[in-house]
Amino acid sequence: MINQKKIMNLTFTCFLTLVAIFFLVRLAPGDPVERLLGPEATYEEIQNYRNDLGLNETVFLQFKTFFLKTLQGDLGKSLFKRKDVMVLLSKHFKPTLTIAFFTIFISSFFGVILGLISAIYKSKKPDHLLRLFSILALSFPIFSLGPILVYIFSVKLQAFPVSEWGDGGFKYLFLPVLTLVIPLSSVLSRFTRNKFLEEMKAPWIEVLKAKGLSSLSINLRVLKVCSPSLLNVIAIQLSVILAGTMITETIFDIPGMGSLLLEGIQNRDYPVVQGVILYSTLIYMIIYFLTDYIAQKCDPRISD
């Protein structure tokens, strides 16, 4: 059940995020206009430009315009590229979305399957092997895994191009997605294994066994019970994916949200930074609350 309290909470959190982002960006040292116009610009030129951009008004007035415009979906113009932030975002959004989408689906698939294998063969060879693999995979952070994979696949085997996006086809997508899938599927398989084994100890399993159900159908039922917590873990991992895609974009030179954000930060391009952070935070929060809702639907025992 979607209750009003949750929606209120979501709205309030989003509003606070908006406020936090706005003020953080403005408290930062460094002036975008001086940077944009270069050291030769005169005082008047700078002031005129600031007036044009509305940077000379009081911070609260600026916030009011920013807030009202954001509600209308207008995120302003990039100070450097002279383009609407919305246009920039939608252009850079596609690579990030593609990578995140494939990562989530592939790693959920492999994570759950490997976790199940691990749980069914508990304390036997496949289990030990998979656990060792997941420990190793989790010990190498994305930014060290990425270059190692590039070294193996692109430099030694020459199977994939080095750091290119091209048309975003399979051969450009493979390494970035693999870099993210390896740690994520390890987390999920570890979690699936533990959760599955925990549920298998529950008393209602005895009932299923007494009814004479095959072990396959028992396993499927247990998996269904585990699914809400699995969803929850995937939702929590979303923030890791979000940050992870940014790092992979830096490693593989992909023109996505991450590169847009870093570029914006370097240039003190307020509207772009605001836009990217706002966009990703909002998406992240909406998915977070959605999974919360789905989890409640799957297992009515979970409620606030």
Partner: peptide
């Protein structure tokens, strides 16, 4: 998202 916050 903690890393995003840290980056910012």
């Amino acid at each position: 998202p903690s890393l995003l916050l840290a980056i910012l």
